[in-house]
């Protein structure tokens, strides 16, 4: 990891020796054991690993949704660790966007209202040109007045992507954004995410356990048993799968 030190100024998010321990005594589970990682600006990073390896936990800690047991987390030049509720709220407003696996949208609001919700919560106006660009890239212009229940799963996720993008956050965290989608809708969403990185310089950190999804990323970080065990630059589905296979055995032991 020392190789990344020189790129400090470029990092959109960074974890320094992060530990996360759930429970106490007998029931203690160390979900993260000393994770250090950097996620560069303008890149699409995937976090991979078998189920239970700590992917979601790492993402939650990075995004300030959960506190760390030890170590520090930074987003841009903000140290997340130790922030209070109002600091975290400000962070979420200004610097972070989220895409979840499911339940991304408020069922009572239309697609457009959902997309604009973070801005209206923060009391800001979206940049109209950027808004138009986002809407056109997600290709939902004719669906803006629809409620989530009137949209397909893929469309819903694209609305969620648009919502995350509109505010132009420092970094977007996505936790298995295609986990609930069929392969075609999944590909649409992933393409869209990759394009927003390539064309608009957005930073995205995506958690997934699907090698095909990970192949869309510029870089893949592998997690096993709460530790970073490997890394791939410019991955393909095959190289990801190979790496995963190699990791399988120790995880089984740990699990």
């Amino acid at each position: 990891m020392t190789a990344t030190v020189g790129r400090h100024a470029q990092a959109a998010a960074r974890a320094n020796d992060v530990w996360k321990v759930y429970g106490t005594g007998e029931a203690q589970v160390a979900a993260l054991r000393g994770v250090s990682a950097e996620f560069e600006r303008g890149r699409f990073t995937a976090i991979m690993g078998p189920s239970g390896s700590g992917k979601s936990t790492l993402m939650h800690c990075l995004a300030g949704l959960d506190s760390v047991s030890r170590g520090t987390v930074q987003i841009g030049d903000t140290t997340v660790t130790g922030l209070g509720d109002s600091g975290l709220t400000k962070l979420r407003r200004d610097k972070v966007g989220f895409i979840f696996q499911q339940f991304n949208l408020l069922p009572t609001l239309t697609a457009q209202e959902n997309i604009l919700l973070p801005m209206s919560i923060a009391g800001r106006k979206p940049d109209p040109a950027w808004y138009d660009t986002v809407i056109d890239t997600v290709g939902l212009r004719d669906r803006l007045g629809h409620r989530p229940s009137q949209l397909s799963g893929g469309q819903q996720q694209r609305v969620a992507c648009a919502r995350a993008l509109v505010a132009r956050p420092e970094v977007i965290f996505a936790d298995e954004p295609t986990g609930n989608l069929d392969s075609r809708s999944g590909a649409e969403v992933l393409n869209f995410l990759r394009n927003s990185v390539r064309e608009h310089g957005q930073t995205i950190v995506m958690v997934t356990h699907d090698p095909t999804a990970a192949a869309y990323a510029d870089r893949v970080v592998f997690l096993a048993d709460g530790q970073i065990v490997s890394e791939l630059i410019e991955p393909t589905a095959d190289t990801v799968l190979d790496t995963m296979k190699k990791l399988d055995t120790p995880v089984e032991v740990a699990g």
Binding site: R92, F98, F103, L106, L117, P118, I121, R163, A167
Partner: peptide
């Protein structure tokens, strides 16, 4: 709960 948590995740403050 989930709806409110989502609002919090995308930046709503406790006061809001």
């Amino acid at each position: 709960t989930r709806e409110l948590a989502l609002m919090r995740a995308i930046g709503a403050s406790g006061r809001q």
